[in-house]
Nucleic acid binder design. Structure first.
Lengths: 187, 187
DNA sequence: GTCTATACAGTGATAGAC
DNA sequence: GTCTATCACTGTATAGAC
């Protein structure tokens, strides 16, 4: 029987609530209720609502970044494309609620935490771009034409497939979803 | 000098405001201000805030659906893949604000208008899936393996690239962005 | 058809007891 | 460290004058 720190209870409740109602729609009252603590405890553990969700979004990108680094370290070429796709889908399915929040927030530029999140987001896109470039190079093709936009397209393809999977076709196994994404890729 | 109906002024102001602050963050006060009308006029033209944004989101999918039907009518095979990609990017760049709203709302299942939007969303995904299937068939490959998840991946790829483009690399021409997406596709 | 004024519920945040 | 009680404020929506 491990005791979960209040801070983590709050973050988990915030994720669950915002997945349903969006960040602005998630009230501190409801987060406190779901966490099983009083609202005052929210403000003891975090300075503000923005601080809570800044942490949630940053955690999401951090988890993805760590998973991508590990996947890229273990494979190259086409295997790296597959490894990166699988790793991303695993992060999504580990926490679909968090994924929904990040997906909804990723293109908002006016958030208090936007300045902190933007570089992390850009760093994640670079992983996908570099994997695409390495694969193109391995096939003897030019890498010049592959920009961050292609990286964002790769990430978008995985996210689109992953969320469609988790929300509407949850019975499918993960490898099958990965194949649907990779079927789009050049070979 | 054409007179814009108040209803359209309100919808346009709602789109602009929600693109910055999200739907929940867009207040009726600010929408009225930006539309240049009184708050009471909002409630004369629409029964509620939800009704306004239900209309905004539905309009977004309708525009995309119309553009996709036209694009598919004019081209087949690889040309259809390109036509659909370009058409989607055109819809995005015609109204990036609306695109940001729809992108943020597309995976929310608790909205008042979710029941209306879900089938429209699914209908749009079918277009992408069918184009992928037709292209596979034209190359003599099996279409059985291509499901809605692949369709969602295609849409996700275009949306990811398109939003990266419009938000961070707006100087690039549209055809170049389309090529970045199509470079991911089998050939 | 659009305005002003207002009702009233819900919001993020704070203070102080335990 | 967590609680209860309460604050000032903003939100959606309504009523009625023009």
């Amino acid at each position: 029987m491990t005791r979960t720190p209040t801070r983590d209870l709050i973050l988990a409740a915030a994720v669950r609530t915002a997945a349903e109602k969006g960040i602005t729609g998630a009230s501190m009252d409801e987060i406190a209720d779901r966490a099983g603590v009083a609202k005052g405890s929210l403000y003891y553990n975090f300075p503000s609502k923005d601080a809570i969700f800044g942490q949630v979004v940053r955690d999401g990108f951090d988890r993805l970044d760590i998973a991508l680094r590990q996947a890229r370290g273990e494979a190259k070429g086409l295997s790296a494309m597959r490894a990166v796709t699988v790793a991303t889908l695993e992060v999504l399915s580990d926490s679909p609620d968090r994924a929904k929040i990040v997906a909804a927030e990723i293109f908002r530029t006016d958030r208090p935490w936007a300045d902190v999140v933007a570089p992390v987001r850009a760093g994640v896109v670079v992983h996908y771009r570099e994997v695409l470039q390495e694969y193109a190079a391995a096939r003897g093709e030019s890498t010049d034409a592959i920009t961050d936009i292609a990286g964002a397209a790769f990430l978008g393809a995985i996210a689109g497939a992953g969320l469609e999977w988790l929300l509407f076709h949850k019975e499918r196994p993960l490898p099958e979803v990965a194949e649907q994404v990779l079927a789009l890729m050049p070979r």
